[in-house]
Design a protein around this nucleic acid. Sequence first.
DNA 1: GAGTAAACCGAACGGTCGGTCGGTTCCAGA
DNA 2: TCTGGAACCGACCGACCGTTCGGTTTACTC
Lengths: 199, 199
Amino acid sequence: MSTETASSRRTTYTPDSLLEVAVAVFNERGYDGTSMEDLARAAGITKSSIYHHVKGKEELLERGVNRALDALNGSLDEMEALPDAGELDRVEQAVFRAVQILVEELPYVTLLLRVRGNTEAERAAQGRRREIDLRLAGFVERAAAAGALRSDIDPHLASRLVFGMVNSVVEWYRPGPGWSADDVASAVTHLVFDGLRRR
Amino acid sequence: MSTETASSRRTTYTPDSLLEVAVAVFNERGYDGTSMEDLARAAGITKSSIYHHVKGKEELLERGVNRALDALNGSLDEMEALPDAGELDRVEQAVFRAVQILVEELPYVTLLLRVRGNTEAERAAQGRRREIDLRLAGFVERAAAAGALRSDIDPHLASRLVFGMVNSVVEWYRPGPGWSADDVASAVTHLVFDGLRRR
DNA sequence: GAGTAAACCGAACGGTCGGTCGGTTCCAGA
DNA sequence: TCTGGAACCGACCGACCGTTCGGTTTACTC
C-alpha cells in the first residue's frame, strides 16, 4: 500500500513473485533436479538476474518451506488458543484445518513435504516440521487418553496414518472446478473418523 | 545354485547387491541429489568400478523402480485370479496386501513413489505406476457400485485418500522390533473401513 | 605357476552446475 | 534534461557432474 506507486504495472519481479515461479518448478522437477537455468527460463529472465532478487537457490528453498511452516504453525497456535471443545472435536478440527492449509498453500507445503535433508537449511525445515507433527500427534494422543478413539489402534500409529493421508493430498490435488478444499477436508475427516464402510 | 561355487564368499558385488546399496542412498539423498561418488563411497568401491556392474546411474534407478512395480503388479494379478469374495472384501484385501508389499519391498517402493519424471525412464515408471493406481481405483469403484461403501464420499476421492494413506507408510515405517508389516496393514484396513471413532 | 576373466582402480574427459562480475537499460523524481 | 537506483543481461569462473579408458589386482582353473 505504501511502497507501491499507482503506475507500477507488474512486469518486474519481487522476491515473492519470483518465489512463486521457483517453487512451481521445484515441485515439477524436484529441488535438486532444478538448475538456475531452469528457473531463469520459467521466469523469463536470465540466470544472473535471479541473483538481483535473492541470494541464491537455497534462499528460494528456505523462503518456500518457511512459508508452509509458518502457515501450519499459525493454524496450530489458533487451535490451541481456542476454548476447549472436547478432545475428539479438537482432533477433527485439526485434521480438517490441516487439509485446508495444505490446499491454501499447496505449492509451498508440497515443497516442504519433499525436503530431503541434504543441506543445513533442509535439515532445519525437517526439524520444524517434526515439531508440527508432534503437536498434531499430541492431539490424537489426548483424545485416545480421554477414551474417544477405538482402543485397538495405537494412537502413535493412528496419528502417522491420519496425517499421512492428509499429506498425500499434495500428490494429486489441483485447484479448479473439481473438488473444493472443504470437499476434500470433509471427505478426509469423515473417512478418518467413521470409515468407508456403509452402515 | 548353478553359477555359485562353494567358496564364493561375497566380498564382491552383483548388479543386485549393488542396487540394494544404491537404492538406500537414493532414498536418503534423493536420486538427483545423489552423485556417483556418493554411491561409490556407500558401496566401498570407486566410482569407475560401479560401471563394471551396471551401465550407469539411470540403470540403477530403472532396476529399482521396476522391482517395486513388478511386485505390485504381481500381487494385483494374484488378487484378480482369486475367486470372487464380495466387492468389499476385495477392496479390504487390496489395501491389506498393498501395505504388505510396500513393507516387503520398502526401499524400492519408496524410490518409485518419489520419481519426478525428469527422464524417459522416470516417465515410464510413472506410467506403469498410474496403471496400478487405476487397477486399485477400479476395486473401490466396483465396491461403491455394489453399494458396499458409504455414498457421501466420491469413490475416486476415496481411492486417492486410501492409497495415499497406504503409500505414506514409506515415509516413516522402518523394519525392526516395533510394528510388524501385518500390524500396520491391519491398522490401515481397520481405520479405512471402520474409522477411528470409538463406537 | 601360467592363463584367464571378473573385479576393481586412478586419472582424466566434456559438460553442466551454482554463482560472480562488469556492465547496460529502464524509469521515477528533481 | 539530468541523475540515481532498480532491474536486468552476457560472459565467465571454479567445482563437480556422470562417464570413459587403460591398466592392475584378485580368484579360480588347469
